[in-house]
Structure formats: structure tokens, C-alpha cells
Write a protein that binds this DNA or RNA. Structure first.
Ligand SMILES: NC(=O)c1ccc[n+]([C@@H]2O[C@H](COP(=O)([O-])OP(=O)(O)OC[C@H]3O[C@@H](n4cnc5c(N)ncnc54)[C@H](O)[C@@H]3O)[C@@H](O)[C@H]2O)c1
Ligand SMILES: NC(=O)c1ccc[n+]([C@@H]2O[C@H](COP(=O)([O-])OP(=O)(O)OC[C@H]3O[C@@H](n4cnc5c(N)ncnc54)[C@H](O)[C@@H]3O)[C@@H](O)[C@H]2O)c1
Lengths: 230, 230
DNA sequence: TCTATATCGATAAATATATATCGATAAGTT
DNA sequence: AACTTATCGATATATATTTATCGATATAGA
């Protein structure tokens, strides 16, 4: 479906990438408990994942383990962070200081994810100039210049869906290279840029469907697939 | 494969389920533009998905289309909503009225997703009794009784990771059947319950990795994630 | 009316992802 | 020192998901 970005090298599946943060989270818990080494079987048991899968996922970071023992907890955490680039901070702009934007501005752990929100923007005059969780809200029309001047690479998009593309365009003009998009709308960007769209309700759809299943609610005329054929 | 006779239908792939909300979102845009029919090819082009995949995803809702034409927009929206159970409201409790919890309490579109947050809980005395976005914050120790009394089925978990399991246990005792978990921690629940854990940073890991790629930061391997997908 | 064609619905093929297997090896045990 | 065992790393197999193909059919145009 999608070619490797490097062209020559093998590619890491998005599925593996998405699990890395949960490994790191759990490893930090173990580290806090003073555990110095950990095996894939142990991690797999804790996170309900197949040990082979864990091993394969961790292998992408280049970590090397010891048979009969596992991996050094600290080295593994560092390998994951280094692989994801979370060991040094990227500056980020956030646009849309509403419910979602405010929540993200209030999240005090971004530095653990290699991210530092350095400015917030909105187009609502009554918000501009206010301080939200320590970040002054700036006017949207300052975004492009400021992004270019500060060499900001990451933009966080928390505006309504219908405004998403127009704000994204400002980010693109400002030289931002990666957009973390919380609006449930696809964003068009030029080659060489990254968009990650988070649709919160995609997860909720899974929950809804599974809930309907366990509650025994029939959702479709003829649950039996064969009976449904004409 | 085959649906079981017991009523638990064959389960639809999580991948398909996760795309349904984006179809619905786009269909609503089309509907707002007065478009009465739409084909899989059209949807696929707009959302950058393969038309065959779109067709297969939509088929799970039981919708029937017309060759050469496509599906009726309105019927399709209804089919998706009905399939997900989003056409009638489920009551939900939210626990943890911090940054994230407040954002969710402030989201005014939950009714479009079949969800109505009917009470919010926290264990912080200075929050209890306050009104947040129209929801009074109740003491955590009222949760279990109230959930049972009101037959609440859905719990939204927005507490720190280390508190997640203990709060989940209260939900379980109260008869809640599905937990939408925003804490980056795995939750243990009995058979017959549903947990959907949203790790916001799993998506950010994909972004980080792809950003490192396009910025030419050498790593062990390439990445094959598609920007607007999960 | 007849023909061309876009699209559906079903199925087959291709690709991606997850899991099982197996030899190698480090560390503890006899 | 030899034996046992847990685990790694690599590879093979199994499963899931995505994409291509094909006949059927509704609609538009000749
Ligand atoms: N709040 C949630 O819990 C939640 C949940 C799921 C998805 N989302 C999505 O996140 C996005 C934001 O949601 P929200 O609830 O925070 O909405 P909101 O209405 O509370 O906030 C949106 C903010 O964006 C600003 N804005 C609007 N147009 C703008 C523009 N062109 N330029 C700059 N700023 C602009 C508004 O002034 C407002 O401050 C939406 O796309 C929504 O669908 C939110
Ligand atoms: N805020 C974000 O943007 C964000 C982003 C990603 C993930 N998260 C996750 O969401 C969760 C909440 O994050 P947050 O930023 O809102 O944190 P927060 O500290 O702002 O809020 C947590 C709330 O939970 C309450 N709480 C703590 N222990 C509790 C308990 N045992 N019972 C009931 N209430 C309790 C606290 O009083 C507080 O009000 C965390 O797990 C966090 O990792 C948040």
C-alpha cells in the first residue's frame, strides 16, 4: 500500500510504531520499581501482547538483549525514545484554543514526548491575549511569520473540521513539516510533509460495536451472513 | 466466517470499524451540500481509500447500493449510525475532571455519537460540587451506587494512569459494561466487558517517526504509515 | 431498443501483520 | 563441567487486511 520512505531499507509497520509508547510507559513503571532488566515475555504478559511481537517491535529500535535475561530497562527506554526522537524537544504551535486545545495546553507531560508547545493561536478576538495554562493566545495571522522565524516544525490542529484545511495551509506556508490533526477531516499537504489525524471517535466506534455485541443487540438485518445473501 | 447461532455475530474487523466514523463525517458534509447519492469511488477519492475497501466497510452496515449510482447518502448515514448504535443515546459517567476530562465535558457533539455524559466524578475535594460545562462534579464514592441505580453502561476514564485500574474497578462494581480509557495504562476487566484504551501518543509516535524520516534523520529503518489513517 | 459504462457485490489474489518454531546462548543448577 | 532453562534473534507459518478482478445490473446515450 505504501512504499518505504527510505527506498532501500525495510519499513517499520505503523502497528509496531503505535505500540512503542505503551512499551515505554510500562518500562518507566518498571524502572520506577527499580527493575533493571526485563524480558519480552514479561512485557507481553503485562500488556497482553504476544512475546514474539514485543520482541519484533523492540528490535526496530536496534536494542540488543541477552538470552535468559532480556533487555536492560533503562537502555530500552532510551532506545525507544531515541528511535522516536523523543529525547530532544521539538517546538510546536497549537491552533484552536477551545476544549481540546486547552486540554493539550494543560498537559504537563509533553516534554516527555519530545514536544514543547511554544505558542497557541486562535481567531477568536476574545481569546487573543489571554493566558491559557501559561501560554498566551496569539492572533492567527501571526502564525505563518512566527513559524518561519522560529523554525517550528510541528503544528497541532484543534480547530473545527471545516477550518482545518485553511489553518493547515497557514502552517504549510510557515514551513511547518508535521501536523498533528485532531479535527475529523482529512488534510491535504505537499510531498515531504507529515499529517497524523487523530479521530477520537474511531476508537469509540470500536467500543460501540463491541458493546452492542456483548449486550446482544443485533445491528444488521440478518446476523447470519449466509441467510443475508440473495 | 460464519455467524454463530447464539446471536454473537461474526466480528467486524477493528480496522473497518475505525473507518466508519470518517465515512459518516464525510457523508454529513455531502448531505449538507445537498448530495443525495454517493459511490464508493467518490468516497474513496475524498478520503484517500481504496474504493473496494470502502465498499467492504460499508457492507458491514447492511446497506445496499445501486449499480452505476451508489448509495443514498441519507440511508447510508443512517445505516452507519444504526450499526454503531449511535442513533439512540447511551448514558455515560466520566471520572477525572482534569484537563482531558474537562475537554470531553465541553464537547458538545457527543449526542451525535450516541453518548450523553450524565455525571462527572473526581476525588479532589476542591472540584467536588463545582459545575464544569454544566456537569456537577460528584464524589468518587458515589459512583458505584449511582451507576447501578441509573443502569449506566459506559464509563469514561480520564484519571492519571496509576489511578486507572482502581477507578475501573468501581465502574465494574457499578455494572458499567464498557470503559473508554484515556489513561495510558492497560485495564483489567471481567469477561463480557469492553475496554477501549486511547493512547493519544501512539499516533504521535507515528508522526514523530515520519517526521524524523522527512527531516533526513537517519534511523534504523523506514516507515510505512499513511498520514490520515491509523 | 440497443449499446456503453459506472458501479455494486462477491470472490480471488496480494500484501501486511501476528504468532509459532527453532537454533544459539547466557545464566543458573546439579 | 555438564545439564537445564529462559530468552533472544531469525525465520517460517498462520491469520488478517487490503486490493484486484469479474459477472451482474441499473442508467445514460446512441
Ligand atoms: N473537545 C473534545 O473533546 C473533542 C473530541 C473529539 C474531537 N474533537 C475535535 O477537536 C476539534 C476542536 O474541538 P473543540 O471541542 O476544542 O472545539 P471548540 O469549539 O471548543 O474549539 C475550537 C477553537 O478553534 C477556534 N477556531 C475556529 N476556527 C478557527 C480558525 N479558522 N482559526 C483559528 N482558530 C479557530 C475557535 O475560536 C475555538 O477556540 C474539533 O475538530 C473537534 O471535532 C474535540
Ligand atoms: N491532558 C491531555 O492532553 C492528555 C493527553 C494524553 C493523555 N492524557 C491522559 O489522560 C489522563 C488525564 O490527564 P489530564 O491531563 O486530564 O490529568 P489531570 O491531572 O489534569 O486530571 C486528572 C484528574 O483526575 C483526578 N483524579 C486523580 N486520581 C483520581 C482518582 N483515584 N479518582 C478520581 N479522580 C482522580 C484528579 O483530581 C484530576 O482532576 C491521564 O492518564 C493522561 O495521561 C491526557
Amino acid at each position: 500500500m505504501m512504499a518505504s520512505v527510505t527506498g532501500t531499507g525495510e519499513s517499520v509497520s505503523a502497528a509496531s510504531l503505535r505500540r512503542l509508547p505503551s512499551y515505554r510507559q510500562y518500562l518507566k513503571v518498571l524502572q520506577g520499581m527499580g527493575r533493571e532488566v526485563v524480558s519480552c515475555s514479561h512485557i507481553g504478559q503485562a500488556l497482553k501482547l504476544n512475546p514474539t511481537q514485543v520482541r519484533k517491535d523492540l528490535a526496530v529500535t536496534g536494542i540488543v538483549g541477552r538470552p535468559k535475561v532480556g533487555y536492560e530497562t533503562e537502555a530500552l527506554i532510551e532506545a525507544i525514545e531515541s528511535f522516536l526522537g523523543w529525547n530532544n524537544l521539538n517546538q510546536a504551535f497549537l491552533v484552536g484554543v477551545g476544549s481540546m486545545g486547552t486540554a493539550l495546553l494543560g498537559y504537563d507531560q509533553f516534554n516527555h514526548y519530545g514536544l514543547k508547545i511554544v505558542a497557541a493561536f486562535d481567531n477568536n478576538p476574545s481569546l487573543i491575549g489571554q493566558k491559557i495554562h501559561g501560554h498566551e493566545v496569539l492572533s492567527l495571522d501571526k502564525l505563518t511569520d512566527l513559524a518561519a522565524r522560529m523554525h517550528v516544525l510541528v503544528g497541532i490542529l484543534t480547530v473545527p473540521a471545516q477550518a482545518a484545511q485553511s489553518v493547515a495551509n497557514l502552517m504549510i506556508f510557515g514551513g511547518i513539516r508535521a501536523i498533528w490533526n485532531f479535527a475529523p477531516a482529512p488534510i491535504e499537504v505537499p510531498e515531504g510533509m507529515v499529517v497524523q489525524t487523530e479521530d477520537l471517535f474511531s476508537g469509540f466506534a470500536v467500543l460501540s460495536s463491541r458493546l452492542a455485541e456483548v449486550m446482544g443487540i443485533r445491528r444488521k438485518a440478518g446476523v447470519n451472513a449466509d441467510a443475508n445473501r440473495r
